[in-house]
Amino acid sequence: MTSGTAVKKISLRLMAVLLVIFIAIQFIRPDRNISGQVFQTDISKTYNIPADVYTLIKNACYDCHSNNTNYPWYSNIQPIGWFLANDIKNGKAEINFSEFGSLSKRRQISKLRGIETQIKNDAMPLPAYRLLHKEAQLTEEQKELLINWIRNTRDSLSLNR
């Protein structure tokens, strides 16, 4: 057997092993973040949010920052699904719009301030999310609309403390 044939055999075996591993990991799926309900603590139930602002929040934030993720088709492919599950877990740890109303007023003010900063700095939505979700690519006007609502809501909370 020549060295070229041996290398070819090893390469084929390696590819076969990798294919088996790839197929096997498809059966290891993370839990889905779908509660199927809007809780009374949801930010949309806690505050009067204009429809245009709520649409922006829903499209740009809710997949990672609520208890109801709208999963894209590629979330069924592992390890992509694992990465998404981790992003959602981390996003909800930072802020969960489904539970926003359960936070103290002081904490809500702090979270709203943080959201404003993230939007201003173009840190949220995440660049990878924006790349795959065109509806999450906020225009300057949409950012301004969101920031104005955030400021007004934060100011009204500060007055009512």
Rank of each mutant, 00 (worst) to 15 (best):
N33Q: 09
K89H: 14
L84I: 09
Y129T: 06
C64L: 04
E116R: 02
R29D: 06
E99T: 10
N33C: 09
E99Y: 09
P30Q: 04
N33Y: 08
T69S: 06
L126S: 09
F27E: 07
K45Y: 10
G81N: 02
Q40S: 12
D87P: 05
E94Y: 12
T69I: 04
F27Y: 13
I23E: 07
S75C: 09
N76G: 13
K105W: 06
T41D: 03
P79F: 04
N59C: 08
P50T: 12
L19E: 10
L18I: 12
G91C: 03
Q78N: 11
H65N: 04
L84V: 07
S110P: 03
T41S: 04
I25R: 02
A24W: 06
N86Y: 15
I88G: 00
G114Y: 00
E99K: 11
V38W: 03
S104D: 11
V38K: 04
W73L: 15
T41H: 02
L112I: 03
C61M: 04
K120I: 05
M124P: 00
F97W: 03
I34D: 08
I109Y: 01
S98K: 00
R106T: 14
I23T: 15
Q108M: 07
Y62L: 05
Y62M: 10
I23V: 15
R29C: 06
I88L: 02
Y54N: 14
T117H: 13
S66C: 05
L14P: 05
C64R: 00
A24H: 05
K120A: 05
F39T: 14
T41K: 02
S104N: 07
C64S: 03
I95C: 04
S44I: 11
G81F: 01
F100T: 00
I109H: 01
V17A: 11
P127K: 07
A60C: 05
P127Q: 09
L103F: 11
I25F: 03
N70F: 12
F27P: 02
N76K: 13
S66F: 00
G101S: 05
A51T: 15
N121M: 13
S104V: 07
P72F: 08
N96K: 03
D42E: 08
Q108P: 02
I57G: 01
I23F: 14
T55P: 11
E99Q: 14
S110V: 05
G81D: 01
